[in-house]
Design a protein around this nucleic acid. Sequence first.
DNA 1: TTTAAGTCTCGTACGTTGTACGATTACTGG
DNA 2: CCAGTAATCGTACAACGTACGAGACTTAAA
Lengths: 232, 232
Amino acid sequence: MAVKRSGGSGKRPRRAKPAEQPRGEAPLSRERIVASAVELLDAEGRAGLTMRRLADRLGSGVMSLYWHVDNKEDVFDLALDSVLEYRKPPQTPRSRDWRGDVIHMLEDWRAIMLRHPWSASLLPRQVLGPNILGRLELLSKTLSDAGVADADLNAAIWSLWNYVMGATITRASFDLSVTDRAAAQQRLEDLSGHHPAIERSRLLMDDDWDGVFRKGLGFLLDGLAPRGHESR
Amino acid sequence: MAVKRSGGSGKRPRRAKPAEQPRGEAPLSRERIVASAVELLDAEGRAGLTMRRLADRLGSGVMSLYWHVDNKEDVFDLALDSVLEYRKPPQTPRSRDWRGDVIHMLEDWRAIMLRHPWSASLLPRQVLGPNILGRLELLSKTLSDAGVADADLNAAIWSLWNYVMGATITRASFDLSVTDRAAAQQRLEDLSGHHPAIERSRLLMDDDWDGVFRKGLGFLLDGLAPRGHESR
DNA sequence: TTTAAGTCTCGTACGTTGTACGATTACTGG
DNA sequence: CCAGTAATCGTACAACGTACGAGACTTAAA
């Protein structure tokens, strides 16, 4: 069996004669594959990504992809992580507003995933790509610097992560087309007799998702950080 | 096209001569299909559920399933909701411990989903089955009775829902086999230089998931409910 | 009794999917 | 010239969801 490239990040040696492809096609590479996968996912959704369509879009044969990528799950993992790069806004390296830093990073996270709705549907998987690890590292460091005790750090990080993921997944799966929304409303009205409290809270209609998200995040941060310990 | 049964809950008329099946197979029904689907999902996981295997297990032809069920997505929806029935513990109808009631229901919810790990992977979908609606109704009513203002009810319910879903999905996807856990740890150590804060918090090892869940839930409830309003 | 309309089961077949396998080509260092 | 190894890709296969339509059976009307 041939020794396949996988996992590692070995650089492909520069080809001596780059003018080979009949079309102006760049040679296949892991990066190009992932970039095309993200385009396809954005355009067609999760079910729209097939290895054949991906190969077509790249102008290559289907099986060529498998030299650079282990399997389709691998493509999903790479696409998910690739979209989650984070550049924190330029500011003094020792920001005093740790709370604002955390909120900014988490809202950015959520915004990205809502901009690429397929990413939410990919979430129930083990995600340890470099960009996600980078975000966790930043979160960890920020909270630590803010005075959260090492013993509580785990709980703090996971609570925030959980909250963001839950809010994003929920929001993404309830972000329906107008037709679907009408159908859902109709369905609720059919059952209105049985669910007066839901009816009264208008749970599934005209929600301020962003506001709810921010509010809940505030509650969590209030609870997680040592009170009266902030600098602002 | 034949008028297919769907959506509604029409009772199948009792068959006059019940001793028809060569084996002791009960006749096909939506309920039997869903029950078998849950068994199959429990045993083989999400990818293990195929219409053919499901039909085999029921001793029927594949296409017979489609009389009772719209398609495979429908089976997933039904299986998910069917598992989430909730019986609240017997107690005085007007419990004073609303906080305990909420915690009990949400922890039960999480426990069920961890007992059926496939349910977490199904989550990014619109879930409005009767059992889930029942839980939302109960949650809504409990919070309302506890003094949460109508205007805040939406935010309260969604925050709790989001938190529970996020925690469950995360927990389920990180609940690895021992081998996988070793691999993940190895991977982290490979990158240890780049992620000192994660390393220090021991984020991915020996976590007390249940404790973290409970703690974060407490913070949320503290924030959501009017403080000093509880009865205990 | 005959007829017609459901209700329910299921065999066959089609198109699509992920990917195993091996042939093929290009380029490298000896 | 040769051996190795990096990379591409055509063919083939098993498995999938499900459309279609033929049938068997039950019930109600004629």
